[in-house]
């Protein structure tokens, strides 16, 4: 038997535990209370090894999700605390995330070739593949933020935008947490809630965009840091989009249908003068 879902709890890095103490936002970030497949009794297959393989590949996604959640928070924290060491750890940690994605890729291809999954089993495999891709992208954005952090610590900080960015990252991390919980619990409602919440992230991004624009107009010396900060804000906004895509996969997994794409779009910065 592969390890049981206890192993799915996100690995709490020292940094992740640290910031949960400092963060003034809701719910502790390091809380290792992810629901597991065991909480959601499914009908068993007659061939029990198939169940074990499906469980394992989903446990792998949860593990990857845990690492990505920590990467999001740690990258934003390294920026706020101007902590180069932490930034470096985030950059190195991306290797593990990429490794998991590769592993999931290989395992899903085996599952398709060997098991010929159908109906809900097929949707599990397809969503696992897509979600691992989304998580990998989020991990890349976190790595990119960490890279920019190492540049930003060389120059004076611009206002308190780093805290605003961390709040935004916090929001995205909570969305990701809920999206992954929704995945394991097969909870469509929670997934739809996550999709709605992306609007707030978009609004936060818009506000920051205007703020950076103002700084740059006021003082050209702030252009370099503001450009980096803007890319960071954009990265976090894109993370939110990937989390939304994960939540959409949950809806597809449970219902077999794609969610309607009629949610309001708040990102209108591209047309803002």
């Amino acid at each position: 038997m592969p390890d049981r879902p206890e192993d799915q709890d996100p690995k709490v890095t020292p940094a992740a535990a640290e910031h949960s103490g400092q963060g003034g936002t809701t719910a502790g970030a390091g809380t290792p209370t992810r629901p597991t497949l065991a909480d959601k009794p499914n009908e068993q297959h007659i061939v029990s090894s198939f169940d074990r393989e499906l469980e394992t590949v989903q446990a792998r996604i949860m593990k990857m999700g845990g690492l990505v959640e920590a990467a999001i928070m740690d990258s934003a924290l390294s920026l706020e605390m101007r902590d180069e060491e932490l930034a470096e750890r985030v950059r190195k940690g991306d290797l593990a995330i990429d490794g998991l994605e590769e592993m999931i890729q290989e395992e899903t291809s085996r599952l398709i070739a060997l098991r010929g999954p159908t109906a809900v089993d097929l949707r599990v495999i397809l969503t696992v593949m897509k979600i691992s891709g989304n998580l990998e992208r989020i991990g890349d954005y976190a790595k990119n933020i960490a890279k920019r952090t190492t540049v930003l610590v060389q120059v004076p900080s611009v206002s308190d935008s780093a805290s605003a960015l961390r709040r935004m990252a916090r929001e995205v991390e909570l969305m990701l947490r809920d999206a992954l919980d929704a995945y394991i619990m097969r909870d469509q409602e929670l997934a739809r809630d996550v999709i709605e919440r992306d609007l707030e992230v978009d609004q936060m991004y818009n506000a920051l965009f205007r703020e950076f624009l103002t700084f740059m107009m006021e003082d050209p010396r702030s252009i370099t840091p503001c450009m980096h900060l803007h890319f960071i804000a954009k990265n976090i906004e894109r993370m939110g989009d990937h989390v939304t895509a994960i939540a959409e996969q949950v809806v597809y997994l449970v219902s077999g249908d794609r969610p309607d794409d009629n949610r309001p779009k708040a990102d209108t910065t591209s047309v803002t003068s």
């Binding site: 090894s49 393989e53 394992t56 792998r60 593990k63 593990a96 395992e107 085996r110």
Partner: peptide
């Protein structure tokens, strides 16, 4: 990371 080997059949 290798604590869960999916394919015990390997």
């Amino acid at each position: 990371m290798n604590d869960m080997t999916l394919m015990d059949r390997k």
